[in-house]
């Protein structure tokens, strides 16, 4: 049986201009993708990413607007500074780079989210289930301090 990766998609609510795409994200996302809608990618704290991996996500995809297209002018760039560094940090601690990706969308593009999500999912699928930072299965008994 092949493994279906659990994906968390953090999506800026403004990044999909096409209502068809928006509709698709809201209603027809594959079952293994969990959607977290945020007002702007600038709202995404590294803690969100950390928690997603800890609670069993195999991959995290962040989607936001292109530079200069942000509804809040520069917030997506602020997010980018932090999250880009956070990715480097998690990779430094041993995470596979393909598990945490960014997707910056131009509002005139159509159907990009479907393709990118597919590509991301298949990349994560190749890596298999994520064991790093996944902490939901830990039992307390038998631990170092137990």
């Amino acid at each position: 049986m092949s493994h279906t990766p659990k994906i968390v998609l953090f999506q800026c609510q403004y990044c999909l201009a096409s209502s068809a795409d928006q509709e698709w994200v809201e209603n027809s996302l594959p079952e293994n993708v969990k959607l977290v809608k945020v007002p702007c990618s600038g709202r995404i704290s590294p803690l969100f990413i950390m928690n997603a991996f800890q609670k069993g996500a195999d991959g995290v995809l962040v989607s936001g607007c292109m530079p200069e297209k942000c509804h809040y002018i520069t917030s997506n760039l602020g997010a980018r500074r932090q999250l880009d560094e956070f990715k480097k940090f998690l990779v430094f601690l041993g995470l596979e780079p393909a598990r945490f990706e960014f997707l910056w969308m131009n509002i005139d593009e159509r159907g990009v989210i479907q393709n990118e999500l597919d590509a991301f999912t298949s990349n994560v699928k190749q890596l298999g289930p994520n064991k790093k930072f996944n902490t939901m299965k830990d039992e307390i008994i038998g631990q170092y301090h137990g």
Binding site: P46, N51, T135, D138, I140, H145
Partner: peptide, 17 residues
């Protein structure tokens, strides 16, 4: 944001963040 236990769920999140 992080569990308050001494399990990796708590301590890893603490050290990373």
């Amino acid at each position: 944001w992080s569990e308050s236990m001494v399990t990796p769920g708590g301590t890893q999140a603490w050290h990373i963040i």
